[in-house]
């Protein structure tokens, strides 16, 4: 079959060129709105309104300064980072431990736990906006530093558990049996054998949790009031209001909150792609 491609008949060369052109245009149409957003965010309002597609003549970094000021982006970046870190730590620990026991042990209630997680995975998460709001209202947990930790945990823990569980199933059982024979306790086995061996799966869930926690909007909009506790996705909402709509500031804000995840993506795209893909495979 390889020979077939390497035959450089005129027909196949043209086909090759055409196909590459199509592929490139597909990629460009995917990336152009983002590129456009980035360079437009450096224009003045007048420049943007008169010639929407042109590149900026001078890079107006003050748009960013203004956007950070207006949107209170420093505080909200800190807050979002806080939720990302707590959620990563919490979900990773829980998912690895429960993933391990679900994969390796039979115990009473295992099915119950498994199916609870499965239902949790299938429930559309934003059907929970009102319920979580009600629960927190009754508990007086609205508008505190820890309010968002619970729904964010709920959003991530099910899939992460399943990902780790199926990965651990692939690790030879003999390894932890050997550890047990050598006298390791379960905790030690988890820490010394399972954690290191499942690092690819853990890396994947860590990055997925980070992305999705950073991006979350609904719960943050409903459960948080104080500016000092607000997350980035809510902060950027405030740009499409007010007496005069400043598109360039808004675009600067959109770029600012997207830069961290785009960077994360460029560095870890392998894990992200495999992770998000397995979201589907898992079903």
């Amino acid at each position: 079959m390889n020979n077939k491609i390497k035959q450089n008949t005129p027909g196949s060369i043209i086909a090759k060129i055409v196909m590459n052109i199509i592929a490139i245009s597909i990629s460009i149409s995917c990336i152009y709105p983002i590129i456009w957003l980035i360079y437009s965010s450096f224009k003045t309002k007048g420049e943007f309104m008169t010639n929407t597609l042109a590149l900026p003549t001078i890079l107006h970094f003050e748009n960013y300064a203004r956007a950070f000021h207006l949107g209170n982006l420093v505080t909200s970046t800190f807050n979002s980072t806080f939720y990302v870190i707590t959620n990563v730590v919490l979900v990773t620990i829980v998912a690895t431990i429960s993933g391990y026991f679900l994969a390796r042990y039979d115990f009473k209630g295992k099915k119950f736990i498994y199916y609870s997680y499965l239902i949790g995975f299938l429930v559309p998460i934003y059907a929970l906006l009102v319920p979580v709001f009600l629960q927190f209202r009754l508990l007086g947990l609205i508008n505190t530093r820890i309010s968002l930790i619970f729904p964010y945990f709920a959003m991530q823990v099910t899939l992460s558990t399943f990902l780790v569980e199926s990965f651990i199933r692939g690790i030879p059982r003999s390894l932890d049996e050997a550890a047990a024979i050598e006298g390791c306790s379960v905790g030690q086995t988890l820490l010394k054998i399972i954690f290191p061996l499942s690092s690819p799966a853990i890396a994947t869930i860590v990055i997925l949790i980070s992305l999705q926690t950073w991006n979350e909007f609904g719960f943050s909009a409903v459960l948080i009031r104080d500016v000092s506790l607000r997350t980035v996705s809510v902060a950027i909402q405030s740009f499409r209001a007010g007496l005069q709509l400043e598109y360039t500031y808004m675009m600067a804000a959109l770029v600012s909150v997207s830069i961290p995840i785009i960077t994360l993506y460029l560095v870890f795209s392998k894990y992200i792609i495999s992770g998000i893909t397995s979201t589907g495979i898992k079903e």
């Binding site: 995917c30 909007f217 995840i261 993506y265």
Partner: peptide, 22 residues
């Protein structure tokens, strides 16, 4: 190509909504 086509999937939906509004 693979990485470029995939890129929008990591953006926040709220950001994507605002981008497309413009």
């Amino acid at each position: 190509h693979r990485r470029i086509i995939f890129l929008p999937a990591v953006l926040a939906p709220i950001v994507v909504g605002m981008i497309w509004q413009i």
